[in-house]
């Protein structure tokens, strides 16, 4: 605290916050968010349990029926689910922001001399850390049940990276929901409501070729199909140019449209 350095009224410009200060603030806020995850381990289940349950359910219950063999279906399903992990993580940013707004914690932060973006970045970094655990566990689990990494470790890492990029673009939508909706349950509820049909109406679970025409049209323009295809090809080998490009384009487009809205909303309510 440097209170003695200021002569009231002497300077009209507001003091800037230095880069190291910003980094320290982000560090402290990230630490806080990680401690929240630790204090509420159930929140980890969303990121982990859902994909694991989906994997078990689909591979062992429907896998034979969908793909003929479970082995082939694993190679189909798991890369796609891995791809959606970034998306699930992104949704947690919005619920977290919403909780902070509702409990008055955000008010406390806003009376402190920190940049308001630090609160947000702290959330994203913490979710990225959660992601690290989630991806590791999911990949380990997949290997245990027999996923073959046909392109080796680089393929998986590329899939994870793509999943994260796509997830980052959804952070803005998640923020927008978190800053607009009434409570965390609503954020989660709306998130589910939108994501569920998107997930099932994509190529994640089954090849679109067996679907009726209208649904096939939907899956074709569903970014989650692109994401699933890209991850599948990155892990199993195959043409990746089109699907990866599409995922990147979607990410850029989503960010371009929703980031300014989210930032404006963030400025307004915080």
């Amino acid at each position: 605290m440097s209170t003695a350095t200021t002569v009231p009224g002497a300077e009209f410009a507001d003091r800037r916050i230095g880069l190291t200060d910003h980094l320290r603030h982000i560090g402290a806020l990230t630490r806080r968010n990680l401690m929240r995850i630790k204090a509420d381990p159930e929140s980890m289940f969303d990121a982990l349990l859902m994909p694991i349950i989906f994997t078990l359910l689909f591979v062992y219950v429907f896998g034979g029926a969908i793909s003929g063999t479970q082995g082939a279906y694993k190679q189909w399903l798991i890369p796609g689910l891995l791809g959606t992990t970034g998306m699930n993580l992104a949704m947690a940013v919005g619920t977290g922001l919403n909780a902070d707004l509702k409990t008055g914690v955000m008010d406390r932060f806003r009376t402190l001399p920190i940049g308001r973006a630090s609160v947000l970045i702290g959330k994203v970094v913490a979710e990225a850390c959660r992601g690290l655990v989630a991806y590791t566990v999911l990949i380990a689990f997949s290997l245990v049940i027999g996923l073959q990494l046909k392109t080796g470790i680089t393929g998986v890492l590329a899939a994870v990276a793509l999943s994260l990029v796509f997830g980052m673009s959804l952070v803005w939508i998640s923020m927008l929901l978190g800053l607009t909706l009434d409570n965390a349950q609503a954020v989660q509820g709306i998130g589910m409501l939108v994501l569920m049909p998107l997930q099932f109406g994509s190529s994640i679970f089954a090849p679109p070729s067996t679907m009726p025409g209208w649904l096939r049209a939907f899956t074709r323009y569903n970014p989650l199909s692109n994401l699933a295809d890209a991850c599948r090809h990155l892990i199993n080998g195959g043409p990746v140019a089109h699907s990866v490009t599409m995922v990147l384009l979607w990410s850029v487009a989503i960010t371009a449209v929703t980031a300014p809205l989210a930032v404006a909303r963030f400025r307004k309510v915080t």
Binding site: T3, R16, R32, R36, A39, T103, V105, D107, R108, P113
Partner: peptide, 20 residues
């Protein structure tokens, strides 16, 4: 920002992090 360094606020409703 300068102002925030000189003030402390206890609002009408608690603003602590419940999980921490």
């Amino acid at each position: 920002r300068q102002l925030r360094r000189t003030i402390g606020l206890t609002g009408q409703y608690a603003s602590v992090d419940e999980l921490l």
